[in-house]
Design a protein around this nucleic acid. Structure first.
Lengths: 205, 205
DNA sequence: AAGATCTGTCAACAGTGTTGACACTGCAGA
DNA sequence: TCTGCAGTGTCAACACTGTTGACAGATCTT
């Protein structure tokens, strides 16, 4: 068997796992990926940064895609507070995402989004959102289609992340950012606690 | 001056523009990009498909990125009907995006989204959404922050496009698709005709 | 006719992810 | 103790990528 399956199962790599060399590779890869995204980082660059032969990176992780999803370690960064009053989760989610202090988290998220060209990454991102957001959120929802609605919230957040990145959200004023969080938060809220807005005809089927 | 600026201004290439060779390149490039996205298509592949020396592609378009944004020709595909009653635009937009008949449009959109790693493409995508959606939609809105709200609608649509692609939306039933359009449409609608949901406190500042 | 600009061709560059052959280690079983 | 053997690390190469420079014809202007 190849060295890939040496790491236990297909689990996400945790800090202090594997040999010192594997840790060095993981640390270097993660730092570079989070800084520059997927495409602009090369295996050779990672190897050099880790003080290791580039071919060794392959030996240990099988492919660049696998290395990426094993190492990107999104969980610690993206930990939105899904507790608190249900009626304000929308705005709090949006504000959390746009918070300048969470720039690192946003960078990681866009890295995952733009690398979703690769099937492995797209599946991984979907799994992350499921695990970190959909599962928890849907459990708090009421009414019909809880899972679908929670999943659509994750879609909204990914969309906002991209657009915020596209306009360089770091340059907008705090007031504007707050306003965006209010507006988009209300749109998110519509999926969390649907307001019987307008002529919402729902046949009880 | 290089051959790049031979094409008039920095405009998007239209059908039947430029020499026959340029048209052949543009057609081949566009077909390949729309089918396989940005990263999985090579210049050499485009050249071969167009029956042309690959280096010539560079001669005419300067770089792969430029070729992509010049050729991707999104406008004809994505022409959402923004007329009709304002109260149902949200749902109609969502339904339009998810319509199986618009699979080609969605492929093009995801190609642009995943290639947004490249600054040129990200800027181009933003411009497309501005031109095709934000400008028209914001003109129809009422109340405050019309541009911001219209822009946030585009963010929602991009998010839905990605997530729909990630779960392979082609496999879900028509009923589920309609339900998703209803739910997400309502969330979009919240930005178009804000419902005074919950305790929306707006200090007149 | 001369010059310049454009179109096209070819070979090469530096860089990419990936792989195979090989050496060295440490530890299992004989 | 010796023998295998799996894991670790090294090196050179593969096929491929986007891109560029040197060069040859063709076309058009002056």
């Amino acid at each position: 068997m190849s060295a890939v399956s040496a790491t236990p199962a297909a689990g996400r790599s945790r800090a202090g796992e594997g040999t010192p060399t594997q840790q060095a590779i993981a640390r270097a890869a993660r730092a570079l990926f989070e800084e520059k995204g997927y495409e602009r980082v090369s295996i050779r660059e990672i190897g050099t940064a880790a003080g290791v032969d580039p071919a060794l990176v392959m030996r240990h992780y099988g492919s660049k895609e696998e290395l990426f999803v094993r190492v990107i370690g999104f969980d610690e960064h993206f930990a939105p507070r899904l507790d608190g009053p249900l009626e304000t989760i929308g705005e709090r989610l949006a504000a959390y995402l746009l918070d300048p202090r969470h720039a690192q988290m946003r960078r990681t998220l866009t890295a995952l989004l733009y690398a979703s060209d690769h099937d492995v990454v797209r599946t991984d991102l979907q799994g992350i959102m499921q695990r970190l957001l959909v599962d928890t959120l849907s459990a708090r929802l009421e009414g019909e289609d809880r899972t679908t609605r929670a999943w659509l919230v994750s879609a909204q957040l990914l969309g906002l992340t991209h657009s915020w990145d596209a306009i360089d959200g770091g340059r907008v004023t705090a007031a504007e950012r707050t306003r965006v969080a209010e507006l988009y938060g209300a749109a998110i809220q519509q999926l969390i606690t649907p307001a019987q807005s307008h002529e919402r005809r729902r046949s009880p089927q």
